[in-house]
């Protein structure tokens, strides 16, 4: 049986300007340690940046904190990074947010964050409830089967 190399990291970050860069760098370093390619890391870090911006701009949370958890594993076909980004804010309706999304490729000034996240990551799952906060779980694979 092959043992999986695993790295884990948990961060609690204040919602201040450019804090998304700290989150992205931490995840990027973890992915790099596990041998993920720079192109995949770039895609993942851009998704993390958008998720943190969404939390900062739209969550309306009272504690002004973003909670992050990264789990990296490397087995078989290469690294896999799981990312959880949570806030304790007001929550939102993902279906309603997607319904407001402009068509792909159409120039539109705002409202693309979730679309970019879904385009840059291999799996995206959102858990949210009104007044109960939001957690976005995203997965990036080196090689998606």
């Amino acid at each position: 049986m092959t043992m999986a190399a695993e790295r884990q990291m948990e961060l609690t970050l204040p919602m201040v300007d450019d804090i998304e860069i700290a989150a992205a760098r931490a995840a990027g370093n973890l992915a790099r340690e596990l041998g993920m390619s720079s192109e995949k890391i770039d895609e993942m870090t851009h998704a993390i940046i958008e998720a943190c911006i969404n939390a900062r701009e739209h969550s309306g949370c009272a504690d002004n904190r973003i909670y992050l958890r990264f789990v990296g594993t490397s087995i078989g076909e290469g690294p896999r990074i799981d990312v959880w980004i949570s806030d304790h804010g007001r929550g939102f309706d993902p279906a309603e947010a997607r319904s407001r999304r402009p068509a792909p490729g159409m120039a539109h000034k705002r409202g693309r964050g979730l679309q970019l996240i879904e385009a840059h990551m291999d799996e995206v799952d959102i858990t949210t409830q009104q007044g109960g906060g939001t957690t976005i779980h995203m997965v990036k694979y080196e090689k998606k089967s």
Binding site: D42, G105, M106, A107, L116, H120
Partner: peptide, 17 residues
Amino acid sequence: LTPVIHKTFQIMGLANY
């Protein structure tokens, strides 16, 4: 552009204009 910025520009619609 890096590949990820190019991809992001396409999604955001910049590539059309």
